[in-house]
Design a protein around this nucleic acid. Structure first.
Lengths: 198, 198
DNA sequence: GTCTATAGCTGGATAGAC
DNA sequence: GTCTATCCAGCTATAGAC
């Protein structure tokens, strides 16, 4: 189950390295996440990246997995809440995940191990979404021929990611209207958004 | 109007360099598009990258602009055709542009000049889409309060890009159904897709 | 225009001291 | 566990020959 090789070591330092890697990656792009840069951001020596993760690839995979596990947990919570559609929309519409996802996609373009990792995770994630939202929509009386759960999932996910990317560039033409339409749609099925009691 | 600096030089070599850059970028990621790698792919010496574009950034900008100009032309053709919605959908659903767009977005994350370039272009592109599709939808009798042109544009663009990215990873759960729904939507407004006479 | 050569960096990974 | 020191590879950009 380890990313590749590397030592168990001190989880504090290990996490500090992953935190640093995430930060550098999101603010300056994956190419800036070098061993030296990440280690210096974490306040430790660059040799520790090899020690903990075996290689840079190992570090990226460990980072991706950590994020994926967190996302998967949050997906479960969102879909199990009293307002699964609102929960889902809020989850994928979370800005903090978007940048890092984009970087991993670009990274995957030329690192095979990363690509495989993301593909696996995406399928698992999508399956969970489909299983859950199929039941939810049925409960709401939505005709699955008229509007399949897969279309709802892909529609919400893609709109959310697209707008987040554009906003990162300072482009937001038409976003207000589109967001309003999405929220109208959810509201019709699930009622007004209630603040989560957590 | 030049990207930055650089010499006019031989347009054949210049284009060969841009072609090579595009190829390397799409197949191995932007980080692989180094002066040496690109020049060697183009069959010339790496010093020519500096000669033609002044710097690597200059090369990326020149490459982006070349692609943007082509896309802008094609957008005009698509939106001016007898079936603007089909034309638009086919244009954005073109696989060959998707990879390169993704790389530029990632690149922009840590190269300011690239980010500015993309932001400018995106706004211009969106404006043209909005101006044109607003009229088209009106002609089709679509109520702009019910379904604003901006929502149609963002919806189609985001779905298309999202699915193309996923397919690049070998993930296509739910794509068939979603594509079918999109095409139903266009068909209702614009009729069966007619093969372009060109 | 296109080349060779090179200066000056920065990178990943590892050996070995502590 | 964490460090220093180091090897070697690869990069950008430029000077100058042809």
């Amino acid at each position: 189950m380890p990313a590749r090789k590397g030592n168990p070591g001190d989880p504090t330092t290990r996490n500090a390295l992953l935190d640093a890697a995430q930060h550098v990656m999101c603010t300056e792009g994956y190419a800036a996440a070098t061993t030296r840069r990440v280690a210096s951001e974490a306040g430790v020596n660059s040799a520790l990246v090899s020690y903990y993760f075996g290689s840079l690839d190992g570090m990226f995979i460990a980072l991706f997995r950590r994020g994926a596990e967190r996302s998967f947990e949050r997906l479960g919570q969102a879909l199990g809440s009293p307002q699964p559609l609102w929960g889902f929309w809020d989850l994928i519409h979370d800005r903090s995940n978007s940048t890092s996802t984009m970087e991993f996609i670009a990274l995957a373009n030329h690192r095979e191990v990363i690509r495989d990792e993301i593909a696996d995770y995406s399928r698992r994630f999508r399956r969970a979404q489909l299983d859950s939202l199929t039941q939810v929509l049925q409960r709401y009386g939505v005709d699955p021929d008229e509007l399949p759960a897969s279309v709802v999932i892909l529609g919400l996910s893609s709109l959310s990611r697209f707008m987040l990317i554009e906003e990162a560039f300072g482009v937001d033409v038409g976003h207000k209207e589109t967001e309003a339409k999405v929220e109208d749609f959810i509201r019709r099925l699930e009622g007004e958004r209630c603040p989560s009691p957590t």
